[in-house]
Each structure stands twice: as structure tokens, then as C-alpha cells.
Design a binder for these strands. Structure first.
Length: 775
DNA sequence: AAGTGTCTAATTTTT
DNA sequence: TTAGACACTT
């Protein structure tokens, strides 16, 4: 072992090392042998295969603490990378807990993107950017691409900007710059224009002094490979590298890591190949599968002792994942023998499923379980609605995790756009967004004209605007409006220098008329928007300057939430990764839904394996009870479809499962032979004849007892209860109802205690006035 | 420039 | 079915 010399730093003292080696510190106590091995294997490449619930975070943090406490490196010489801000935050907190305030020196602990952004700020000019570059999000990215497509006269119906954005993202994830595209890739868009468009896009980004998420990494790679001295600087800086969730890294991230680790080789990657569920976003399971070949001499440590789940749950999950071929292989074990078997149930339809689960939630609650200990994990978000409706009806408190995130809300993006434009006049995307928000009489025609002039002269749109207000090209009214807008901008820009940006934000929102416009807005969302803006201003307080805040906004798309009320958690399987709950419901295990048909169509066997890992992630979230369910009939986009139980149901080891079915159908049976259930001949599961048509008929009969849409509204327009109607679900009890939308028809107001609903479908206007009855 | 009607596509989502 | 994008009025 040798320490690289770094002139700026004194070498660690030998006495510190000796002491650390002789007597293990407190923080090592309580680790099991495999965890300890993972903590102490410090030099050289290390792969820690950390199964679900094996204490990974503890190992990660202890390892960092150990490196620091043993004097091998100082906090700022460690590079620790995570995928999410949440993970980074958690790691920092836990290290602080072990080593105290010196953890603040860990300035290179963060997400791939935030660290890459920091590095890029220091060397931006090497890739043609200024150090105050803006980071565009997906929305900006798509708008920019749309403009390019329009300029290139490409039919944006046939070749949507979204698709191109996805492709460019994919290319960047693979580490390909425009000139590095393989010919085959080029053909993927607009008959071979992909590469040219990608190049145009990159040029536009450079002019806008902006980059997208993929660029952060890619520019880093460009800098490292073209400027050996810069890379050497980071080689000296980062003595030990640590990566969390290695199974989720994409090629670009892999290349970035390999470049940074290539000298010291002190790279520790922690991950679980069985929990790789982000392939569709560019993650390469191959990275983790190949680790030992990529880094010769690597140590591999397996964490296999599970502290989370009971043995039935663990065994069920293990049996399922064993079907996958591409995996490194682990055998999780636990001392918590026994417990409940995994319950698998077949029900008639989605409604029955949500009824069943809601009933069980209530039962669990009566038995003393807190709501917050219960999670419902779905494959796709459209499955959530059924549960929400049921829970609203039964007044079971719930939270839907996810949904549009704070910084993606329109009002927040508008507010931020003002700041961006104040910060950087070149930010045409921000200009375009807010030049007429709130409405100030600068219409589409005017904006297009401005953009055209801007592009023609190669200047930012705000410059073009400045020029045009001096001429009489615009109608007088529009010209005044634009001139006022520019004048306001200048004033704010002047203020930005001497007032705090939170104060500036308030001023801008007031003076631009943004808050006034919202106050006048009678729609039910307006109030919430105003509150969001208040929250925004509040959140700005913690940042030193505008630039730091804007970077935070681009890279940290979430806002820390206060402690949640006691509610059932509804979320997707993807969102559940890293979490655990005593009781987990896993609904919708039907072929085509889960595993998702689209995954299988698009990615074949690989896609199926990823779906199976998702199922594995789902089951392993459960501490004590996991309950899987599938419906024989399900409404998908309004159409009734017969469903087959997911193949994953069949793959669960029967010994760890307790199965029943109210449909009399479970797995195979005559007419379903092709399904090949393991339980085909098991009378316990009722193998009786059940054709899809027969089951559908049963379901329809059943459904007849549950009339559809009904909303109960008080005379003053407050919603008292909603039936299982989907459209009404957007409203909560107590909301004032102004406008309810039902498909093609809409409810426009309240008269007495009745709602009038007008439908306009196929040219025919109908008025239904018995839609609502008083509670 | 804002309001209304029509068409169409429809996972997972972090940064 | 239904949200959202877009085209077409007013």
C-alpha cells in the first residue's frame, strides 16, 4: 500500500494507522463478519454484493468513517457517489452520526450529476461553456428540440421531439457524442437525420450556455480524456472512491468512474444485481456482472445475512429470482425463522381487489398496525387510482408517493424561469416561458417573430426584443407591453445584486403580476399554486447565492417533506426501492400488467428478467407480511379484459405461499394448459374449467351491484363523498366543486343541491341532472 | 389571445 | 376511459 503524494496535504501519520489497525474502533462493533470484511477491504477494487435488507447503508457509512478514522484520507479526498439526493443526504447524516461534524468536509459526497456539475463548473471553458451554465431539465430539452425540428422542417407528428429527446438521452447514457454515433444508431430518427439533429442540438446548447443532465457526465468524460493534466488533478484529489447502487450505473457513469479510479484503483462499488430495475433508463446490469473482469484483482464481498424479512418472505423472493439467468448469485438467509407465508389471492376484478385490500388494511389497523406500516406497491401508476377511490370512500388515510414533483410544477418552473432570465440574459428558454406569463398581451405571433430575429442575428431573444421595441414593427400595445417587461427585467437584475434572492423572488412574483393573476384564478388549483410559491420562497432562504440555488433546483428535484401523517403508502415498485414496510400489498400480478407487456415486447428476455427483479424488489420490501393479488378481469383504458395470473405467481415456491382464489381459477386448468402452472393438478387451487368469456360474464354480473359514477355534493358546492368514479377522484372531500370533468362531458356548476352535467359526445348534447343527490 | 372542440396514445422516472 | 396536445374558432 502506498499513499500518493499530494503537495497540498500532509501525509497521514503512521501512528494513526497503527492505532487504527491495532484496536478496532467502536463503530466496527456490532458488524457481522461479512459486513466487517466489506468495511475493511479498503485498498484496490472491491465489489460489495449487498442483498436486500443486509445492512448496506450501514456498511457504506462505516466504511467511509473507517477510512477517515484510520487516517488514510481526509474528508475531501473521498469521492462517494449515489444516484439520488435522498441517498446522499442519508449517507451524510449517518456519517455525521459516527464521526461528528468533520463529515462536513465530505464535499465530494453526492449524486453523479451534482458531482459532475461541480467538476464541470471548474472546467466549463474546456467544452465551450461558461462556468455559470444552466442545467436544462427534460421540459426545456424537449422545447429546444421541438424548435430545432421545426427549423429543420421535420414533421413533428411523425417524429416527435420526445422521441428524439429519448434517443439523445440514450446516446448520452452510452457515452456517445454526435461524432461517435454508430451508423446504425443514426438511422433511428427521421430517416437518418438523427446524428445531424443531435449535433445541432449540442450547438444550440452551447450558444445558450446550457447543458442537459446527460451532458454533465459526458462533458466530464470529454475533459478527462482530452486533458490529462486535469484528470491527474482529480487522481491526486480522490484517494478512495465509493459508489452506491452500482447495478444502476449506465455506460457513461461507468466510464467516468473508470477514468477517475484508473490510477489509485481504490474503487469500491456496492450494489445488488438482483435489484437492477432501471435498465429502461440506461442502467447496465452488465456493469456489475462484469466488475471482476473490468477491475482485475477485485475483491468480492457478499452480504447475505438479511435483517429485514421473515424466512417465508425471503424464500419466496429467492425462489422467484432464481428463475433469472443473468445474475451473480447470492443466498440470503435470516435468523427470523417462520412468520407468515406470502399470501397469494385471485379475485374477480380490479374493484374486488381494491375492496379486499382496503378491508385488510382496516383489519390490520384494528389489530394495532399503524397505517404508515402498510404499503401498496403497484407496477404502474394507473393502478393507483382504484385504491385511492376505495380509500377515499372508506376514509382510510393514504398518501400517493410520487406524482409531479415540486420543481416540475408549472408555477414553480415559471418562477424559476424569471430567476434564470435575471441571472442570465442568454436563457432563451426561460425568456420564452415567461415573456407572456402572466398574460401581458405578448402573443404567439410576437414571440415567434422575436425568436426568428434572434436566431437570424445569432443573439439572445431578449436582445432581439430590445431592438424591436425601438422600431415600429410591433403594434403599439404589444410594443408597450414588451418594453415594460424588459424594463422590469432590468430593474430586477439591478436589485439582484444587493438583495437576497428569496426577497428578489417575492418582488418578482408581485411586480410581474404573477401572484395577482393567480389570486384572480377561480380554479380549484390556484390556491395550492400560491402556497407552492410561498414554499418556494421559503426554501430559497438556505442558499448563499442565486447560482447555488438554481443549481440546487436543477439537480435536486425534490423538496424535503416534513414528517408524514399516519397514512397508507401507495407507490410504484420503482419508488419502493430502498424502503421497507411491515405489511406490503402487491396487487395486479397479471400477465401483461406485471410483467409488463411492453417491457417484454421491447426488451424480450432481458425485459422479462428486469420485471422479475422488480417483483423481487417488491416482495423483499416486506418485513412481516407480503400479499400478492391478481384479478381475472380488469379494465384497461376503459376496456374490459380477461387476465391470466402473472407467471411470477407460478414461480413462487409453493412451500412459502398460501394461495386461494375467489374466482375458482388459479393458474391452469382445462383451456389454460398453455399457461403451464405448477399447480395445474392441485385441487386446493380449484383447477375447474374457466374460459375467459365465462369469467367475464361473472364479473359483469358482479359489477352490476356497484353502480358507477356518483358524486354527493352539498348545496354550497362542497364535495361530501365520491363514488368509485374515476373522474371525481381528483377531488377530495370538502373541496368546493366548480368544474368536474367526466370524459367528454363536463359539470359546470352547482344549482341547489344538484349538479348539471352536459355531455357532448358524437355531436349530441345531453343534460343529465340527476347525477348528484344530496347526502 | 383566449376559448372550444377533436384526436390520439396510453410503464417504470432520477438527475 | 381520459388527459393532453393540437387545431380551429371567436
Amino acid at each position: 500500500m502506498s499513499f500518493e503524494s499530494d503537495s497540498s496535504l500532509p501525509a497521514p501519520r503512521i501512528s494513526d494507522l497503527a492505532r487504527a489497525d491495532a484496536r478496532p474502533a467502536d463503530y466496527l462493533e456490532g458488524l457481522n463478519p461479512e459486513q466487517r470484511a466489506a468495511v475493511e477491504a479498503i485498498e484496490g477494487p472491491v465489489l460489495v454484493l449487498a442483498g436486500a435488507g443486509t445492512g448496506k447503508t450501514r456498511v457504506l457509512t462505516t466504511r467511509l468513517a473507517h477510512i477517515l478514522a484510520s487516517g488514510r484520507a481526509r474528508p475531501w479526498e473521498l469521492l462517494a457517489v449515489t444516484f439520488t439526493n435522498k441517498a446522499a443526504r442519508e449517507m451524510r447524516e449517518r456519517i455525521t452520526h459516527i464521526i461528528g461534524p468533520s463529515a462536513e468536509g465530505l464535499r465530494w459526497l453526492g449524486t453523479f450529476h451534482s458531482i459532475a456539475a461541480q467538476i464541470l463548473r471548474r472546467h466549463a471553458e474546456l467544452v465551450g461553456l461558461k462556468s455559470n451554465y444552466t442545467i436544462l431539465d427534460t421540459d426545456d430539452q424537449e422545447r429546444l428540440l421541438k424548435q430545432i425540428l421545426e427549423a429543420e422542417n421535420i414533421d413533428s407528428k411523425r417524429w416527435p421531439a420526445k422521441m428524439l429527446a429519448g434517443l439523445i438521452d440514450h446516446w448520452k447514457n452510452r457515452g456517445w457524442r454526435p461524432d461517435q454515433l454508430l451508423p446504425a444508431e443514426n438511422g433511428a430518427f427521421a430517416n437518418g437525420k438523427g446524428q445531424a439533429l443531435y449535433r445541432l442540438y449540442q450547438e444550440r446548447l452551447r450558444i445558450l450556455n446550457a447543458c442537459d443532465f446527460g451532458d454533465l457526465l459526458l462533458h466530464n468524460i470529454t475533459i478527462f480524456t482530452s486533458q490529462p493534466d486535469v484528470l491527474a488533478e482529480y487522481h491526486n484529489r480522490f484517494r478512495y472512491l465509493l459508489v452506491d447502487e452500482y447495478q444502476d450505473t449506465n455506460v457513461a457513469q461507468y466510464l467516468w468512474l473508470r477514468l477517475l479510479a484508473q490510477k489509485s484503483q481504490n474503487l469500491c462499488c456496492v450494489g445488488d444485481d438482483d435489484q437492477s430495475i432501471y435498465g429502461w433508463r440506461g442502467a447496465e446490469v452488465d456493469n456489475i456482472l462484469r466488475f471482476e473482469r473490468d477491475f482485475p484483482g477485485a475483491k468480492v464481498v457478499r452480504l447475505e445475512r438479511n435483517y429485514r424479512s421473515t424466512s417465508h418472505i425471503l424464500a419466496a423472493a429467492a425462489g422467484l429470482i432464481a428463475t433469472n439467468k443473468s445474475r451473480l448469485g447470492k443466498t440470503l438467509w435470516t435468523e427470523a425463522e417462520g412468520g407468515e407465508k406470502v399470501i397469494v389471492r385471485g379475485v374477480w376484478d380490479g374493484e374486488a381487489e381494491s375492496r379486499l385490500i382496503a378491508d385488510e388494511v382496516e383489519r390490520a389497523k384494528r389489530a394495532g398496525r399503524a397505517y404508515r406500516d402498510i404499503a401498496i406497491l403497484v407496477r404502474a401508476s394507473f393502478q393507483m387510482r382504484a385504491f385511492e377511490e376505495r380509500f377515499v370512500l372508506l376514509q382510510i388515510p393514504y398518501v400517493v408517493i410520487g406524482g409531479p414533483r415540486f420543481f416540475e410544477r408549472a408555477e414553480i418552473r415559471d418562477a424559476i424561469a424569471y430567476l434564470r432570465l435575471i441571472q442570465s440574459e442568454d436563457d432563451d428558454l426561460a425568456f420564452e416561458r415567461i415573456v407572456n406569463t402572466p398574460k401581458r398581451g405578448i402573443g404567439d405571433t410576437t414571440v415567434q417573430k422575436l425568436l426568428q430575429i434572434a436566431r437570424l442575428n445569432g443573439v439572445p431573444a431578449s436582445h432581439a426584443a430590445r431592438q424591436i421595441v425601438l422600431t415600429d414593427e410591433l403594434p403599439a400595445r404589444t410594443r408597450t407591453a414588451l418594453a415594460n417587461f424588459l424594463r422590469d427585467l432590468d430593474r430586477w437584475r439591478g436589485q439582484a445584486e444587493h438583495i437576497h434572492h428569496a426577497r428578489l423572488m417575492e418582488t418578482v412574483l408581485e411586480e410581474s403580476g404573477y401572484t395577482d393573476a393567480l389570486k384572480l384564478d377561480k380554479s380549484p388549483q390556484a390556491q395550492g399554486r400560491l402556497e407552492n410559491l410561498k414554499e418556494l420562497v421559503q426554501s430559497m432562504g438556505g442558499y448563499d447565492d442565486l447560482q447555488a440555488y438554481l443549481e440546487h433546483v436543477s439537480l435536486v428535484m425534490d423538496l424535503e417533506r416534513g414528517p408524514q401523517a399516519d397514512s397508507v403508502q401507495i407507490m410504484t415498485l420503482h419508488q419502493a426501492k430502498g424502503l421497507e414496510f411491515p405489511l406490503v400489498f402487491l396487487p395486479g400480478w397479471e400477465e401483461g400488467v406485471f410483467p409488463s407487456q411492453r417491457s417484454m415486447d421491447e426488451k424480450g428476455e432481458k425485459g422479462l428478467e428486469e420485471e422479475r427483479r422488480l417483483a423481487y424488489v417488491g416482495i423483499t420490501r416486506a418485513r412481516q407480511e407480503a400479499r400478492i393479488s391478481f384479478a381475472a378481469n380488469r379494465q384497461v383504458y376503459g376496456r374490459w379484459t380477461s387476465q391470466l395470473p402473472s407467471r411470477f405467481v407460478d414461480e413462487l415456491p409453493p412451500a412459502n405461499v398460501e394461495a386461494s382464489s375467489e374466482t375458482g381459477y388459479y393458474g391452469g386448468g382445462p383451456g389454460m394448459q398453455q399457461h403451464g402452472s405448477r399447480w395445474d393438478n392441485d385441487p386446493d387451487f380449484g383447477g375447474g374449467y374457466s374460459s375467459p368469456g365465462w369469467r367475464r360474464a361473472q364479473a359483469n354480473q358482479y359489477r352490476g351491484t356497484h353502480p358507477g359514477r356518483q358524486a354527493v355534493i352539498e348545496g354550497d358546492g362542497r364535495l361530501v363523498a365520491v363514488s368509485e368514479s374515476s373522474a371525481a377522484s381528483a377531488y377530495k372531500r370538502g373541496d368546493r366543486v366548480f368544474h368536474l370533468k367526466f370524459g367528454y362531458g363536463s359539470v359546470k356548476g352547482v344549482e341547489g343541491n344538484k349538479l348539471t352535467v352536459s355531455f357532448d359526445k358524437a355531436g349530441e348534447k345531453k343534460v343529465i341532472d340527476s347525477f348528484v343527490e344530496k347526502a
